[in-house]
Structures are given as structure tokens and as C-alpha cells.
């Protein structure tokens, strides 16, 4: 087959020829089937189920139109979840990105030092381990009686707190843990962006007599805008989809109560797997899909507009 094609020297990448068609069929057909079977069809099924009263344990699944959605917007727990998720997203994203950017700015300037690699590694370390062991450690740090955090705040004269079990604090404690775990990742992305900014611009800025802060304000940040936007939207998307983090932190007697930290995917999981209302849970999934799609759309626009 190769030899036959050899005669056709003209068509290069621009036009489709037989070996490429063959390659596409062999590679893309299985991949497309996989995508269909384990991603696309299940997602469509989810949307379809959201228009039905679909209980996992009942054989009949009658069509009920938009009832699930109407009910959702009167469901206190779902509205709580929506609010908590938004608070979680806004606070954790802003704090994580601000700290990550600050650290990146500090690290960027003295790249010649070997020590910066060590810093980078240390800040990145929390990104690595999985959530269950991390939650074991943090649950103990937050423990009301023997927890380390109560000891530390005690030094500053603050009364011991039930960090996870106090409904007023639980969401903030989980945000703190998520910030701790997320900083390293975004720090690396910021460092990449910073590397792109050419040195000449800095030199020019310093010749004009700008101090460090002014330089950051007028040179670095504007040039860093695309990467900041990119991080912002990726982080917001991830934050809206947060689940495992909350799930493991509410697990067990030491865990947080569910309502103060209820997030959308958690509520969905509970409706689906605990109360077995798959249709209702699917409606929640669909709303999440819409929210995240809008965020993604904004991302594409913000990145493109640069």
C-alpha cells in the first residue's frame, strides 16, 4: 500500500489521502466509540433523565417535563448548595490565586539562585498527594480537642474552635484546606507567564525610575493579564465542580456537618445515591453543566480577546 501511494507525491498535509484516511479510521473510530460510550451518551442520558421522575429503585420512570427544575429552585438545600459553591469558588479562587501570584512574583526575580527550585518544590508538594490521606491529616489538625490548629491559635490567645464541626466555620476551614492544596499548581502557571515577559521591558521600566511595586503594577500585571484570566476561569471551573474534597472532609465522626459545606455536586450525589432520586439529581447535574459551560465560554472569550 505504501508503495502505491509513493507515486502520488503531490498531496502533502493539505489534502486527505488514503493512508491518512486509514489512520483516522483505525485510530479515531475506537476513540470515538469510547468517548460515546463512557462520556457522551452518559451525559446525554443524564440530561434526558432530568426530565423524568427517575427513582433508582423503581421500575417506572414517567416523563414530568420541567418539574424537577421547578422543584430544585424551591429546594432550600439546593439553594444552599448553590450559595456555598459560589462562596467557595469566589473566596478560594481569589485567595489561592492572590497567594500563588505573590509567591510567583517573589520567586521569579532571582532565578539564578538554586534555592528557588527548592521553594518551588516545597510549595508544589501539597498538590501531589491524594485527598483521602490529606483529609486524614487535616481532620486531625482541625480536631477540637487535640488539634494542632487550636494549639497554634491558642498561642495568640484565641479560644479553641470546632473548626470543622462549627457550622459557621466549617466552610471556611474547607476553603483554607483547598487553598493550601491549590497554591502550588497556580504558582507554577504564573511562573510560566512571568517567564514570557521580556527582560527589556523591565529594564526600560527601571530606567524610568520605577520601583519594584510600581513595576509590578504597571508592567508585570498588565502583561500577565492573559494568564491571570486563564487561571481565574480554570480555578473557578474546578471550584464549581468541587466534590471529593467536601466528601472526604464530611466523612466520619470527626467530619464536618453536611449542610454548612454542602456544594452542588455533593447535594447531587446525596439526592442520587442516598435518596435514589436520579432524575432530580440529573437536573442538578444539568444546571451545573449550564453554569460551567458559561464559565468555559467566558474563558475562551477572555483568552481569545488577548
Amino acid at each position: 500500500m505504501e508503495r502505491v501511494r509513493r507515486n502520488m507525491r503531490v498531496p502533502i498535509t493539505r489534502r486527505l489521502v488514503w493512508p491518512q484516511v486509514f489512520y483516522c479510521i483505525v485510530v479515531l473510530v475506537p476513540v470515538t466509540i469510547l468517548y460515546l460510550v463512557i462520556r457522551i451518551i452518559p451525559i446525554i442520558q443524564t440530561i434526558w433523565m432530568s426530565f423524568h421522575k427517575w427513582d433508582l429503585v423503581r421500575p417506572l420512570h414517567p416523563f414530568i417535563g420541567l418539574d424537577n427544575y421547578v422543584k430544585l429552585f424551591n429546594d432550600r438545600l439546593f439553594l444552599d448548595a448553590l450559595r456555598n459553591t459560589t462562596v467557595f469558588a469566589i473566596v478560594s479562587v481569589i485567595v489561592t490565586l492572590a497567594i500563588a501570584l505573590m509567591i510567583a512574583l517573589m520567586l521569579e526575580k532571582s532565578m539564578k539562585w538554586k534555592i528557588d527550585a527548592v521553594y518551588k518544590m516545597l510549595f508544589f508538594l501539597p498538590v501531589v498527594p491524594t485527598l483521602v490521606p490529606v483529609s486524614v491529616v487535616w481532620k486531625w489538625i482541625y480536631d477540637p480537642t487535640y488539634g494542632l490548629l487550636n494549639y497554634l491559635v491558642g498561642i495568640f490567645g484565641i479560644k479553641p474552635q470546632g473548626w470543622l464541626i462549627n457550622p459557621k466555620l466549617a466552610l471556611w476551614s474547607i476553603i483554607l484546606m483547598s487553598v493550601w492544596k491549590g497554591i502550588g499548581y497556580y504558582m507554577i502557571l504564573f511562573l510560566v507567564g512571568l517567564k514570557e515577559i521580556s527582560l527589556e521591558l523591565y529594564e526600560a521600566a527601571s530606567i524610568d525610575g520605577a520601583g519594584t511595586l510600581q513595576r509590578i503594577r504597571y508592567v508585570t500585571l498588565p502583561l500577565l493579564r492573559p494568564i491571570i484570566l486563564f487561571n481565574l476561569v480554570i480555578a473557578t471551573m474546578t471550584a464549581y465542580n468541587v466534590f471529593a474534597l467536601v466528601y472526604v472532609m464530611t466523612m466520619g465522626e470527626q467530619g464536618a456537618p453536611a449542610n454548612p459545606v454542602r456544594v452542588i455536586v455533593f447535594d447531587m450525589y446525596e439526592n442520587g445515591f442516598r435518596y435514589l432520586k436520579m432524575g432530580y439529581a440529573s437536573a442538578e447535574a444539568t444546571i451545573l453543566l449550564i453554569i460551567v459551560s458559561i464559565l468555559t465560554f467566558l474563558e475562551f472569550r477572555s483568552v481569545r480577546s488577548r
Binding site: 462520556r39 443524564t46 447535574a285 468555559t296
Partner: peptide
């Protein structure tokens, strides 16, 4: 586009 939904949302059909 399938990336934007967390796996848990369509876990049951799978």
C-alpha cells in the same frame, strides 16, 4: 467539552 462535567454527574449510566 466532556471535560467540563465532573465524572460523578454521569456515573450512574456508566
Amino acid at each position: 467539552a466532556t471535560m467540563i462535567l465532573p465524572f460523578e454527574t454521569y456515573m450512574i449510566p456508566v
